[in-house]
């Protein structure tokens, strides 16, 4: 008795869940539900990474996207006034245009995605060491540049929200 078939079953479940929840993010009317569906999609993506043997990336996926980004989005949603949002639905009324645009974009994406065909299996023992060497060795410079960019964005955000008001400070 072996459990090799489980991988295919898990992949099927995860794939259906990702596509379904991804569609739900766009189609669901309530924005909080959309945020939660997005969290669910992220979780399923982490499951996909696990199936590929990239456990570190899966852990970071959950840590950053589910634990932090979704919560920040929910935070933002709750601070937004939930009145009449007809003006907010401007882009959701343009279905034909959206279909044309997506169809136009889908072709290069598909071609690009199917170019990733590497037959080499991942080395046993997890992806921690390969990830670390590529992040801090091969791609150290882009990594640092990205971190400086994020720092600049952070400082910019602080400057934007800072008030000159004596009372509040």
């Amino acid at each position: 008795m072996t459990f090799d078939f489980l991988e295919m079953v898990l992949f099927a479940i995860l794939a259906i869940a990702i596509v379904g929840a991804g569609a739900a993010v766009v189609l669901v009317g309530r924005i909080t539900s959309a945020a939660l569906f997005m969290a669910f999609t992220f979780l399923c993506m982490a499951g996909m990474f696990l199936l590929l043997g990239a456990e570190t990336i899966a852990a970071f996926q959950v840590l950053i996207y589910v634990g932090a980004i979704t919560v920040l989005i929910l935070y933002g949603v709750m601070f937004t006034p939930q009145g009449s949002r007809d003006y907010g639905l401007f882009f959701q009324k343009q279905t034909p245009w959206a279909i044309v645009f997506v169809a136009f974009l889908a072709v290069p994406v598909m071609v690009f995605a199917s170019s990733f065909q590497d037959g080499r299996p991942l080395a046993r023992g997890g992806d921690l060491v390969p990830l670390a060497t590529s992040l801090f060795g091969d791609f150290a410079y882009p990594f640092e540049v990205a971190s400086v960019l994020l720092l600049a964005a952070l400082v910019g955000a602080i400057v934007l929200v800072k008030r000159d008001d004596e009372e509040i400070r």
Binding site: T32, L36, A39, E55, T56, A59, F60, V62, L63, V66, G67, A68, T70, V71, L74, Y75, M78, G125, G126, L128
Partner: peptide, 23 residues
Amino acid sequence: NIGLLYLTTLGSMAVLGIVIAGW
């Protein structure tokens, strides 16, 4: 071999539940 990362990851998921409970 990522045990500690796994633990922090799971710890961070509780926030989501609490925010949803509040909402």
